[in-house]
Design a protein around this nucleic acid. Sequence first.
DNA 1: CTTCTAACA
DNA 2: TGTTAGCA
Length: 127
Amino acid sequence: MKEKELRRSLAVLPIGTVMKLTDLTARQIRYYEAQQLIQPERNEGNRRMYSLNDIDRLLEIRDYLAEGVNIAGIKAIYEQQASAAQAKQENQEHPLTDDDVRRIMQDEFLRQGRLGQTRPGIQQRPL
DNA sequence: CTTCTAACA
DNA sequence: TGTTAGCA
C-alpha cells in the first residue's frame, strides 16, 4: 500500500493537462501555487509538473473557493490536517497530551472562526 | 505549439 | 482574475 502513494506523488502532468482536468485557468493554478496551496515540481526546462495528488488538491481548492472559503481559510485547513497527522504519529510513539491540546485549540479557532467570510453574497454554513 | 514571468488599457 | 507581451 505504499507504491500507490508514490505514484500519486509523481509529478508527470504539464499545466495544460491540469487545466483540462480541473477546469482552472493557468493563471489560477499558478496563483494558488504562489499562495503556497500547492508546490508542483519543475522539470529541466523550468516547466511546472503536477502529480495526481496536486490534481486532487486543486480540485479541493476549487470547491472550497466555490463554497466561499478564502485562500487564508484553505491554508488554515491544510495546516490543521498537517498538524493533525503529525500529532497522530507522535502519539503513537508517546501516550497523549501536548500537541493534542494545541490541535484542539486550533480546531476550535477554525470553528468559531472568521476564516472564510471575506466575501459578499455568500451565506456561511455551520461546519 | 506550450509554458513562463511580469505587468496592466 | 483576465490578458498580453516577449522569451525559451
